[in-house]
Design a protein around this nucleic acid. Structure first.
Length: 493
RNA sequence: GCCCCCAUGGUGCAACGGCUAGCACAUCACUCUUUCAAGGUGGAGAUAGGGGUUCGAUUCCCCUUGGGGGCACCA
């Protein structure tokens, strides 16, 4: 039997993190077994559904790289089949007409709530005999079709939870067809899953209470049942189910924040699942290879943004320069930085990609190598250019010293020049290197400085130093006027 | 009110019923005397509680507690 799984979101919202992981688990299950991944949009609630949400869901899946084999199908298009199934249920006696109006039901529910007696349907239309039912229906009285929940117990072997069981008397007779002849969720799902020959229904834990109802419909219709698996929910830091208020909206928001789909997929896979060993940083192929439903955990997992960031950093560091450059280039061009030399861009990306955890951070590391000027980060200036006179002195000496280097500059050639200067000035290398880093990068973080100098090259380094000196001299002048520069000991570490 | 599910450090995951409960993120310290968002080393930190079963329970059973999900003519 080949595996056929489906992801069935309703287009009433974005593809959020929880839905994305459910989709991912289904996709992994399909890809790991040469199965089929089906997408079905559950749009029977026309009021709340929208085309925008449908395409947002499609975009989200596409970004994550979860390619769909069949679909998207739209549940609303199967209404005729759903209705036929509901009628079949009625004909078999598994469903009956309920003449209670929605208003009456709501009122009774309110009353029950107030008296604390639970809010189920009381089954008052259940015993209306067939002829009475027929004549009332014939007289034009509106009715809904309700499923007649049998006595006993409904159980199944859950893919992740193991044996699951519900006492049927805890389940009310539920509506399968509304009085306006439109099908209700639980019926439509069974109808569609059967129609699509779905073999494994893997969905969130919030669906467990729907499962016995759906199983009863399968049984009443004499249809083969799929295997069910309920994956735990993803929680916010407060332990509650993830929602907008945790800042976790669309997965596409994570794209905007600068996460790679590889990092996101890797992170999501590790929420409630593990390969069984200590591996954490995994490629898509490795995930497909290692994935197994029986290793899915039963407990909910808290979404930890910091771990996602770390994992994303690992994926950035492991990505080839070409693919990272494809993200970096447009971002820089948007701010007016033109890059002609693709090979050089790749060299820069390869040099800096080990540190940043997000794409914007990566761009921030690349920018100083390709932009005409850099902005000085205040924290870096405060820390390493604290004594502007000393920083200026160091940079003034460094210029000519570096100028003597033969082309092309290499890290090995740059190092002795910088260290030599520190020695000559009788100061620690850090007191030369750190001010230089700020001058070149504008920030306190960078790869090893000798690599930076070498890769930036003569022209750019000279310009950066010149600009820095202008800034520092102005700073010193201001300090003089205001009555003294900061004379506390400079950082030598 | 009723039904269902879950329970290993702050977080994500490991641990055929059997080493001193392991790894990662975060955190702290040290280190790399070149920064940190990178690397290295080390520290602190968990089996919710109580009963069983067993030679032996993180692991199996029961109870308690705690947490979560659900109970619509929504999906």
């Amino acid at each position: 039997m080949t595996v056929r799984v489906r992801f069935a979101p309703s287009p009433t919202g974005f593809l959020h993190v929880g839905g994305a992981r459910t989709a991912l688990f289904n996709w992994l299950l399909a890809r790991g077994s040469a199965g089929t991944f089906i997408l079905r949009i559950e749009d029977t609630d026309r009021e709340r559904s929208s085309d925008e949400m449908t395409s947002a869901i499609l975009d989200g899946l596409a970004w994550l790289g979860l390619d769909v084999d069949e679909g998207p199908f739209f549940q609303a298009e199967g209404v005729a089949r759903h209705v036929a199934d509901a009628q079949a249920l009625h004909e078999r006696g598994a469903a009956y007409r309920c003449f209670c109006t929605p208003e009456e039901l709501a009122a009774r529910r309110e009353e029950a709530k107030r008296t604390g007696t639970g809010y189920g349907y009381d089954g008052r239309c259940r015993e209306i005999d067939a002829s009475t039912s027929d004549s009332r229906a014939g007289a034009g009285e509106p009715f809904a079709l309700r499923f007649r929940v049998p006595r006993g117990e409904t159980s199944w072997e859950d893919l992740v939870h193991g044996p699951m069981s519900f006492p049927n008397d805890s389940i009310d007779d539920f509506i399968v067809l509304r009085s306006d002849e439109t099908p209700v969720y639980n019926l439509a799902v069974v109808s569609d899953d059967h129609d699509a020959r779905v073999t494994h229904v893997v969905r969130g834990d919030d669906h467990v209470s729907n499962t016995p109802k759906q199983i009863m419909i399968y049984e009443a219709l004499d249809r083969p049942q799929p295997v069910f698996g309920h994956v735990p929910l993803i929680l916010g830091t407060d332990g509650k189910r993830l929602s907008k208020r945790h800042g976790a909206m669309s997965v596409l928001a994570y794209e905007e924040m600068g996460f790679l789909p590889e990092g996101m997929v890797n992170f999501l896979a590790l929420l409630g699942w593990s390969p069984g060993d200590d591996r954490e940083v995994m490629t898509r192929d490795e995930l497909v290879e290692a994935f197994a439903v029986d290793r899915i955990l039963k407990k909910g997992a808290v979404f930890d943004l910091e771990k996602l960031e770390w994992l994303n950093g690992q994926h950035i560091a492991a990505s080839p320069a070409e693919s990272l450059a494809a993200h970096v280039r447009p971002a820089l061009e948007e701010e007016g930085v033109v890059i002609e030399d693709e090979a050089r861009l790749h060299a820069v990306v390869d040099l800096v990609k080990g540190r940043p955890r997000t794409l914007p951070a990566l761009v921030g590391q690349v920018r100083p190598f390709v932009a005409r000027e850099v902005d000085y980060e205040q924290a870096a200036v405060d820390r390493f250019w604290k004594r502007s006179d000393e920083a200026a002195r160091v940079l003034r000496e460094l210029g000519p010293a570096l100028a003597g280097l033969p082309e092309p500059w290499t890290p090995d050639a740059v190092e002795p020049v910088v260290r030599g200067l520190a020695e000559r000035l009788e100061m620690g290398a850090g007191r030369v290197i750190n001010p230089l880093r700020v001058a070149l990068m504008g920030q306190g973080v960078s790869p090893g400085i000798f690599d930076v100098v070498a890769l930036m090259g003569r022209q750019l380094v000279e310009r950066r130093i010149r600009t820095a000196l202008g800034y520092l001299d102005a700073k010193s002048a201001v300090a003089d006027v205001l009555g003294g520069d900061d004379t506390s000991p400079p950082e030598d570490a």
